[in-house]
């Protein structure tokens, strides 16, 4: 064992980012980021699921028959998702209601399945754990960024607290209700991709 392989954590944050480069998990990124709090909780849930499913699958990777591996992966992911869902319902019921079906849909989140197939099936448990952390955080960074921008400009609040002072509204400022709609989230993701590719030319297709 050659110590911690930092590349596994660092790469998914920028040049292999699951949302902006691999374009996975877009659905939930558009659906739950209208407010910061649900976006943060969703990001946390995905981190937990992807880290532990990576670890578990990697531990039992040599005993899974290749023909039924997808079913086995799904069972383990579902188990983790149900656990997360129950915990959310128990401790942050309001947020859980806002996230509604999207917590359950983590099961079909391409990032989770993609990492299991592409990484955990062929790599050692510790590396898989790091890969899970990296990809989870890569997803979380984008979700939280979207959540901050959309809630700040769409509702004038952050985490439910008023941020934009009343004097702004008195001067004629209005909240941008397009920010709360999913199309604007897609445009924002596009702008993030644009900025990222302008800074890192390696990512541009020929």
């Amino acid at each position: 064992m050659a110590g911690i392989n930092f590349k596994l954590i660092k790469n998914p944050l920028s040049k292999e980012n699951p949302i902006t480069v691999q374009v996975l998990g877009i659905c939930s990124a558009l659906a739950v980021t209208a407010k910061l709090q649900p976006a943060f909780v969703m990001a946390l849930s995905v981190i937990v699921v992807v880290v532990f499913s990576n670890l578990i699958i990697s531990l039992i990777r040599n005993t899974i028959p290749p023909r039924i591996r997808i079913i086995v992966q799904l069972v383990i992911v579902s188990l983790l998702v149900i656990l997360v869902d129950q915990i959310l319902k128990a401790f942050v019921y309001d947020v859980s209601k806002q996230l509604s079906v999207f917590v359950g849909l983590i099961i079909t989140n391409c990032i989770v399945m993609g990492r299991l197939e592409a990484f955990a099936m062929n790599n050692k448990p510790f590396d898989s754990l790091l890969d899970g952390i990296g990809n989870g955080i890569g997803y979380a960074v984008i979700l939280v960024t979207l959540g901050i921008i959309r809630e700040l400009f769409g509702s004038g609040t952050l985490w439910g607290y008023n941020v934009i002072p009343q004097s702004f509204y008195d001067m004629g400022y209005q909240d941008n209700s397009l920010m709360i709609m999913p199309p604007m989230a897609l445009i924002l993701v596009g702008i993030i991709i644009w900025i990222q590719r302008a800074r890192n030319k390696d990512l541009c297709e020929k």
């Binding site: 209005q174 941008n176 209700s177 397009l178 920010m179 709609m181």
Partner: peptide
Amino acid sequence: AFLFFAFPSS
């Protein structure tokens, strides 16, 4: 369209 959806009140 941007204004129509972003600032419906105006």
